[in-house]
Simulated scan of single mutants.
Amino acid sequence: MENETGQGDGDRSLAPAVTRAVAVLDMLAANREESFGPSELGRRLGIAKSSVSNVCHALAQGGLLRQVDGEYCLGQRLVEYGEAYLAGVDLVQQFHAACLELAEDEEETLQLAVLDGSDVVYLARRGGGHPIRLVSEVGRHLPATCTAVGKAMLATLSERELAERLGADQELRGLTANSVRTRAELDRQLSEIRARGYAVDDEEAGEGIFCLASTVPTRSGTTAAVSVTLLKARHSREREQRLVELLRKLVGDLAGRLGSTGVRG
């Protein structure tokens, strides 16, 4: 027999009002294209109409429900809670979990980074079968314009955002003789990245190092990117295309774990 919590007598809730509220939200989420009045919700849930009315009124006051012509549907506040949850997902943990899904014999180094002003910050790395000495140690800041992960993330920004991050100076910081040095050259590269779908660092952050990168859509507002790095001596056009596919697979898996969809270049 059900009681006013919508549960059997053997499953009595310690907080009946909360249990009723969860039941109402679950019902509306399962029928997200419809709205229901208290009578219909009570009938479907086995809860007294008066209890449902009180619950719905309180949820609407808190923005969790929206009332339209005497019926209720989900409210905007739930979106904020969802975004807060997604923002709390451990990006580094999910990166390592996604890396485990790749072939165990993968030879190249994988890295995760985020933007911090005009720099990138490296958060995690999964070493490959070929040891590489990198300037991009975990926790280190590097100029975004010198790295594949940085340029991939910069390519997603508007002109206003780029100006805010890079400033008015047309001369850019460099790390090697191959680093991009001017805003004009950077803008040209960013256009290529948007068209190609991934960024390239050809000995721009470190001599003898070649890197490919793509952004990870997170829905939480964090701008992140992952990269695959190899020795320049190992680079070939054929290997690059294979690594681009690896990168896309990693981005897709990681985006799914972070509650997002789609791949951005």
Rank of each mutant, 00 (worst) to 15 (best):
E2W: 10
N3A: 05
T5M: 05
G6A: 08
D9H: 03
G10T: 12
D11T: 10
P16N: 05
P16K: 03
A17R: 14
V18G: 03
T19W: 11
A21Y: 05
V22F: 11
M27H: 15
M27S: 13
L28M: 06
A29G: 11
A30R: 15
N31S: 14
N31P: 07
E34S: 10
S35C: 04
F36D: 01
G37R: 02
G37Y: 02
G37C: 03
P38C: 05
S39N: 09
L45K: 05
K49L: 10
V52H: 06
V52Q: 05
V52A: 06
N54I: 12
A58L: 13
A60V: 06
Q61F: 14
G63K: 09
L65M: 08
D69I: 01
E71A: 13
Y72S: 01
L74S: 05
Q76P: 13
Q76L: 14
R77V: 12
A87N: 11
D90E: 12
L91I: 12
V92E: 13
V92H: 01
V92D: 05
Q93F: 13
Q94G: 01
Q94H: 12
F95D: 01
A98E: 00
C99V: 03
L102E: 02
D105V: 02
D105H: 07
E107Q: 13
L110Q: 04
L112C: 04
V114M: 08
G117T: 03
G117I: 02
G117P: 04
G117Q: 04
S118R: 10
D119W: 01
V120F: 00
V121N: 04
Y122W: 14
R126E: 09
G129T: 14
H130T: 14
H130D: 09
P131L: 11
P131G: 09
V135K: 15
E137N: 15
E137V: 15
R140K: 14
R140I: 12
L142F: 10
P143C: 08
A144I: 03
C146M: 06
C146W: 01
A148F: 09
T156V: 09
T156L: 12
L157F: 06
R160T: 13
L162T: 01
A163K: 11
A163P: 05
R165D: 03
D169F: 11
L172Y: 06
L175H: 06
L175R: 10
T176S: 09
A177F: 04
S179A: 07
T182G: 12
I193P: 00
R196T: 03
G197S: 14
V200C: 02
D201H: 03
E203L: 00
E204Q: 12
G206A: 15
I209P: 01
L212R: 05
T215K: 02
R219Q: 15
R219S: 15
G221S: 06
G221E: 04
T222F: 12
T223N: 07
A224C: 07
A225S: 08
S227W: 08
T229R: 09
L230I: 10
L231W: 12
R234V: 00
R234P: 00
H235C: 08
S236L: 06
S236T: 14
R248E: 08
R248N: 12
K249I: 00
G252Q: 00
G252K: 00
D253H: 09
R257N: 07
L258A: 03
S260R: 05
G262E: 07
V263G: 08
G265F: 04
